[in-house]
Nucleic acid binder design. Sequence first.
DNA 1: TGATAATCGGAATGCCATTCCGTATAAACG
DNA 2: CGTTTATACGGAATGGCATTCCGATTATCA
Lengths: 188, 188
Amino acid sequence: MELAQALRADARRNHDALVMAAAAVFAEVGVDAPIKDIADRAGVGVGTFYRRFPTRADLIVAVFRHEVDRCASEASNLAKEYAPFEALTRWIDRFLDLIITKKGLAAASSSDAPGYAALRAEFETRLVPPLKTLMDAAAAEIRTDVSATELWRAVALLCAPATPDDFDQTRKMVGVLVNGLRTALPGA
Amino acid sequence: MELAQALRADARRNHDALVMAAAAVFAEVGVDAPIKDIADRAGVGVGTFYRRFPTRADLIVAVFRHEVDRCASEASNLAKEYAPFEALTRWIDRFLDLIITKKGLAAASSSDAPGYAALRAEFETRLVPPLKTLMDAAAAEIRTDVSATELWRAVALLCAPATPDDFDQTRKMVGVLVNGLRTALPGA
DNA sequence: TGATAATCGGAATGCCATTCCGTATAAACG
DNA sequence: CGTTTATACGGAATGGCATTCCGATTATCA
């Protein structure tokens, strides 16, 4: 599945070293960390970095791909175990766990800077479809004029400045937003 | 009212020139425009800029102070003319007009970067109190566990990437958020 | 008209992104 | 195994921007 076959052995080594170094640096400093720091930590030059990952977003995608996939895959389980709206809110909570614990990820994923197109595309491809499925399932209870893309974008924006410390406060405001999707009262 | 008396004549001239130049540049490029561009346009050196406005936020505050005040002052009129929740939503709409039409202002005002403390303080001082008044008036219809500060912050975050083109889309998501504050259904 | 304190301008410094190219080497070939 | 060659490497070089610093200027007042 990985298209690594086309890479020369040293190139693959460097690729892997960069992803590992980036994971460490991202955890410490956030996804905005200077490229040089990541390259140094991986023991490669910045030229090598840019050859392997033309944009910072490409690196971010590589670092978090597995976590994103795991988050996406949990949607179907929630859909089976809970009522539609409950499944939706629980999955969004799960999404918050993913995004808030990665310093700067929410801001980066909701950035419209051209360099972050790859990251937006990743979310659009992997996370929006399951979200859409959950929203469709809950269609009877929520506004239908808000698309899944619009919703994740809004959630990401609300999370943009959040750190794990603000988790509860951010969750509250996301809760307000999601509550605003309802067409019926909680008690109904 | 302006504490300009303490300034030497040339200093005051430069101050005013900077504010005017900044207003023009902000309108064209946004509030993130390079300081040098603003200084050039005002015909002063960057040293003069930094002496007069230690942070970019100080300049932003100076440029938009009147508009911010006007927005704040309209809250009381709306409170008189409309039912509480209606007044709240209308004022937030008014706030959107203010913030979305100034390129980068929403992002800057919701930034938690230390350099933007002055801008956050300006909003907190001038806009949050009227918002709180409107929210208090509508207390019977909305959640009471969301503070005025939290609400404006969330609204600003939703507007952060918006341009006048996205106005309708942004307004929609802000509408969802505000709707999520309600404790009763629209029809109730 | 000086004296003096406030101000000015822009060169200098530092940080970071991104590109470029001479050097090195993995891998394919004979 | 050499040889060849397409890939890949590293880090110096370039460019943009923020911010600081200080010798040169100038408003103000006695």
